[in-house]
Design a binder for these strands. Structure first.
Lengths: 194, 194
DNA sequence: CGTCTATTTGAATGTACTCAAAAGCGGTGG
DNA sequence: CCACCGCTTTTGAGTACATTCAAATAGACG
């Protein structure tokens, strides 16, 4: 049990007093997951916003044909959840599953509300975090529209080398919105080019 | 000058005292734009978060080939801005332009910060607004991956009939990530089907 | 070493794009 | 009132990017 990485993450964004840190620590849950375990399942209510201490998760959606679409990955110092489900406490559209053994800090809905009350500046912190997530999400929409599959792959590889290295290629393909076969062809094409 | 729609929008989300309403009113700017005018231009710093009282705006991006990609529309009771630019006060990636004569309520960066200080629960309100925007953005990514152009169009038409009716079709096409020609073909196909 | 999963390769196909031209439509001026 | 202009939409032919399906190959792990 080590939630220090959470404080290290918060520190540059916001100052917390020792009491506030203690309160925060008392209202979150540290939990280990094994590779393959689900943090959230489609149809369940997403009970937690999660901060990743170590490991890696994927968030994905199963469409009506059973096709899996990876929406996001999360690694050390990232947040994950099905936010739509969490904020309205309604059934989740997405699954969050661990791709490695993973350590998470869980913020339950009730405790997060309580923390917002007791430490109002957390409201500010989370506003800023979500603002950045929203901006990143919009940028991804733009990339999906304006870049070819090849360029989206190169962008991903360049931006998130530490993710590309540790997850299977078919998940990268799904994240990029292409088939695993086509990503394979893109890679072999890139290899011959140089 | 009528900012009542803003208060009507806020009321179901949060209670404001008369003093708070007055303070808020004193720290925002009401402004009319003509059809075609820019609210934000690519390269400028986005000075305001904008609440739409009336009219309609498009947010778009010009890629390296000069191709326009519509990222979002905003109509009555929606928010618009280049949030990435606004939150970090750096040059904007996107343009926001009025598609009709438009009335906006402008929140400047400084005044919004001041309002957050004086009315901390506004921090909560904006957090919740951005959370919902983020969720919507993620859902759009999922739709772009899992639906065909035809189904994306049908979804858009169904969800936002009041937008589809009042804007030219080539902008709808751009928003959906397809060419205007292809959207035209989709529509004629739908017409023959029934 | 064998099994299971992930990746690669190839051929046929499909969805959406490009380019070019024609048709529709709204406003303006002769 | 009609003719013309600019802009939007439609139509068609040819093309490109990405998919599907099937089979072969490579890698990981017990």
């Amino acid at each position: 049990m080590n939630i220090q990485p959470l404080f290290d993450y918060i520190k540059p964004l916001m100052d917390l007093t020792a009491e506030e840190e203690a309160l925060l620590a008392s209202k979150v849950t540290y939990r280990k997951y094994l590779k393959g375990q689900y943090v959230v399942q489609q149809g369940d209510i997403c009970k937690y916003e999660c901060f990743v201490i170590s490991g890696c998760t994927k968030t994905f959606y199963l469409d009506t044909e059973g096709q899996e679409h990876v929406i996001m990955f999360a690694i050390e110092n990232w947040w994950t959840a099905d936010m739509g489900s969490f904020i309205s406490q309604t059934p989740a559209d997405y699954n969050v599953q661990c791709l490695e053994n993973t350590e998470l800090i869980l913020f339950s809905y009730e405790n997060l509300e309580l923390l917002y009350k007791k430490i109002p500046k957390l409201e500010r912190l989370f506003r800023q975090i979500v603002e950045r997530a929203f901006v990143a999400s919009q940028k991804r929409i733009v990339r999906n529209f304006s870049l070819s599959a090849k360029d989206r792959y190169l962008y991903f590889k360049n931006q998130y080398p530490q993710i590309e290295e540790r997850i299977p290629q078919y998940l990268v393909a799904s994240f990029l919105g292409i088939t695993k076969e086509f990503l394979s062809k893109i890679k072999s094409q890139l290899a011959t080019e140089n």
